[in-house]
Amino acid sequence: MMARRLISWNVNGLRAFQKNGGFTWFLQERPDIFCLQETKAQPQQLDESLTAIDGYHVYFASAERKGYSGVALYTREEPKHVAYGFGVERFDNEGRTLVAEYEHFTLLNVYFPNGKSSEERLQYKMDFYEAFLPFLDEITSQGKNVILCGDVNTAHKAIDLARPKENETVSGFLPEERAWLDKLITHGYVDTFRMFHPEPDYYTWWSFRARARERNVGWRIDYFFVNDAFKDHVTNAFILPKVMGADHCPLGIEVDV
């Protein structure tokens, strides 16, 4: 058995993240797999200190629009195959998905859309959700194990945000958004963090306003899911709220394969 440590982090702009010391943390920790969301950069805009890391294979899926969205993957082990997007152009051109196939699992690093800015973006988010799940199911139907990580942009249950009552009509905690997470679970995917931590007050994102992070008034909107058949390979799941560098914090799992 080989133990692997995977970290996911919405960095809210890779260049700002580097300035804020988040990348230094990564270079000290050196996880086996590091998944970033909301990089807001295309590789050609970045210097080599972010794109050529000794001991890592590096992949970027970038939005056509500069300074927007984007995901990145830093991995010690070279994947057998990497796909950019999941085959739907209106979603793939925002650079939201990287799919990396390894020997024992397929990793999906996803930055799901945010629905807060307008009705149109909420609809786009719901359309993304509905298109993504069959893609995920297609992978598991082939007998492959999956690890899905990233910023899902929705808190699943009341325990997953500090102010559930006040946010019932806010995108990120709407009934239809939460229902999709219910559906994901009924399709046989497991929220790894809740396997180990059923208790409240664990969040992954805090507003920059009103000292929210200091007061731990947050939302748990970043996740690691695995298919049910793979869950026994997950030996730990964790959130690291004290690690600074962005408005989100890193979260991770450890797997034995």
Results as ranks from 00 to 15, higher is better:
K183T: 14
I185L: 04
T186M: 09
T186I: 08
H187S: 14
H187Y: 12
G188T: 05
G188Y: 02
Y189P: 02
Y189D: 08
V190K: 10
D191H: 10
D191W: 07
T192S: 11
F193P: 00
F193C: 01
F193Q: 01
F193G: 00
R194A: 02
M195F: 07
M195A: 06
F196M: 10
H197W: 06
H197N: 15
P198F: 03
E199P: 13
E199M: 08
P200G: 05
Y202L: 04
Y202F: 15
T204R: 10
T204H: 08
W205R: 04
W205M: 08
W205T: 05
S207Q: 09
S207L: 08
S207N: 10
R209N: 14
R209M: 12
R209P: 11
R209H: 14
A210K: 12
A210C: 05
R211S: 14
R211F: 13
R211E: 15
A212L: 07
A212V: 07
A212T: 10
A212W: 06
A212S: 15
R213E: 09
E214N: 04
E214G: 03
R215Y: 09
R215Q: 14
N216P: 12
V217N: 08
V217R: 09
G218C: 09
W219G: 09
R220S: 04
I221F: 03
I221D: 00
I221L: 13
I221W: 01
D222W: 01
Y223A: 08
F224Y: 03
F224Q: 02
F224R: 03
F224H: 06
F224A: 02
F225A: 07
F225D: 03
D228G: 12
D228P: 00
D228R: 14
D228C: 05
A229W: 00
A229R: 14
F230K: 05
F230V: 07
K231W: 01
K231M: 06
D232P: 00
D232H: 14
H233E: 11
H233L: 08
N236P: 00
A237S: 15
F238V: 07
F238D: 13
F238P: 00
L240G: 00
L240K: 11
L240F: 03
L240T: 08
L240E: 15
L240W: 04
P241C: 11
K242R: 14
V243H: 06
G245H: 10
G245D: 08
G245V: 09
A246P: 02
A246Y: 00
H248R: 08
H248K: 06
C249Q: 05
P250K: 11
P250N: 10
